[in-house]
Amino acid sequence: MKANVKLISKHRKYSEELKKSIVNDFESGKFSVPQLERLHNISNQSIYNWIYKYSRSNERGQRILEMKDSSTEKLKALEQRIKELEQTVGKKQIQIDYLEKMIDIAKTDLDIDIKKNSNTPQSSGSATTRRK
């Protein structure tokens, strides 16, 4: 006699809230699709389907391309580069201010005009010499 056995479905069902939460994580740039796949143990095809279904920016028929590095990592690297460049510009500005102050001191205290006078005529170069 066979027992009354119910087959368990192999398909998992996910709540709408979970699907939308995963799509929001993807759209905000927190996670890439492969990261979400590993994090939630959900196939990437399911995640892409949810993105097409629930996303405000992606539509079916448009391909979603992702780089290996997540966009947040790239953004952090670019922000760090901007910070370094701003520091370099700041240092250069301090040097310029220092040199301008030294020029002013040389002019007032030592009576030396380091800046080129705009009225000074251009030099004609060295005179040509004749060969013997």
Rank of each mutant, 00 (worst) to 15 (best):
48 Y>D: 08
38 R>V: 09
104 D>F: 02
63 R>K: 11
39 L>H: 01
86 E>C: 12
21 S>Y: 13
105 I>M: 08
56 R>T: 15
25 D>Q: 01
5 V>D: 08
33 V>K: 01
104 D>G: 01
31 F>T: 07
31 F>H: 02
51 I>M: 03
16 E>R: 03
40 H>Y: 06
124 S>Q: 14
11 H>E: 14
30 K>W: 03
45 Q>N: 15
90 G>M: 07
79 E>V: 11
74 K>V: 14
5 V>Y: 09
36 L>P: 08
105 I>K: 00
1 M>S: 08
52 Y>L: 01
24 N>Y: 12
130 R>N: 12
79 E>Q: 12
40 H>P: 06
53 K>Q: 12
121 P>N: 09
1 M>T: 09
40 H>L: 05
59 E>G: 00
21 S>D: 13
50 W>Y: 02
93 Q>E: 06
119 N>R: 04
92 K>V: 13
80 Q>I: 00
17 E>G: 05
88 T>L: 14
52 Y>P: 04
91 K>P: 06
24 N>D: 11
56 R>P: 14
75 L>S: 03
34 P>H: 01
63 R>L: 11
60 R>H: 02
13 K>G: 13
17 E>N: 04
78 L>W: 11
17 E>K: 10
7 L>G: 06
131 R>I: 14
109 D>N: 10
61 G>S: 01
75 L>H: 03
66 E>D: 07
99 L>F: 04
